[in-house]
Amino acid sequence: MTMPVTIIMIEDDEGHARLIERNIRRSGVNNEIKPFTNGTDAVKYLLGADGSGLDHKGHALLILLDLNLPDMTGIDILKMVKQNSYLKSAPVVILTTTDDSQEIKRCYELGCNVYITKPVNYESFANAIRQLGLFFSVIQVPPAA
């Protein structure tokens, strides 16, 4: 990796956030993880002070996104990211409890890169996150243009 990739984790459930972080660390990924527990703060951070996303020009971002947020749906954030000229190249991983096929289809249509359903079975959950960590360690994340 030429640039350290920042992982933006948008997850309202702190327990989930903790479990995700632990399992990512366990898979050996040591990148910075910026957690957000609501959509508004996350959007504010992503778009920056001027609301254009220019702040992240030249940074490599990877977004972990939950669909069920208290103030907005993850779909809105996904749309916003994919329509922003600075952010659209950042990979978006949807990590949510929703396993509705319609929802999954919609997310992929909107440009999400990976869709993962959180299984209640912890083995599967941990496994999925670790594989995601593996994925993080091999993918090339382009810096925001």
Binding site: H16, K118, V120, Y122, F125
Partner: peptide, 15 residues
């Protein structure tokens, strides 16, 4: 659906 979310935590932290 929403019941499932805390269940992930319970199961996760139990493990």
């Amino acid at each position: 659906h929403d019941l499932r979310s805390p269940l992930v935590n319970i199961m996760g932290f139990t493990s």
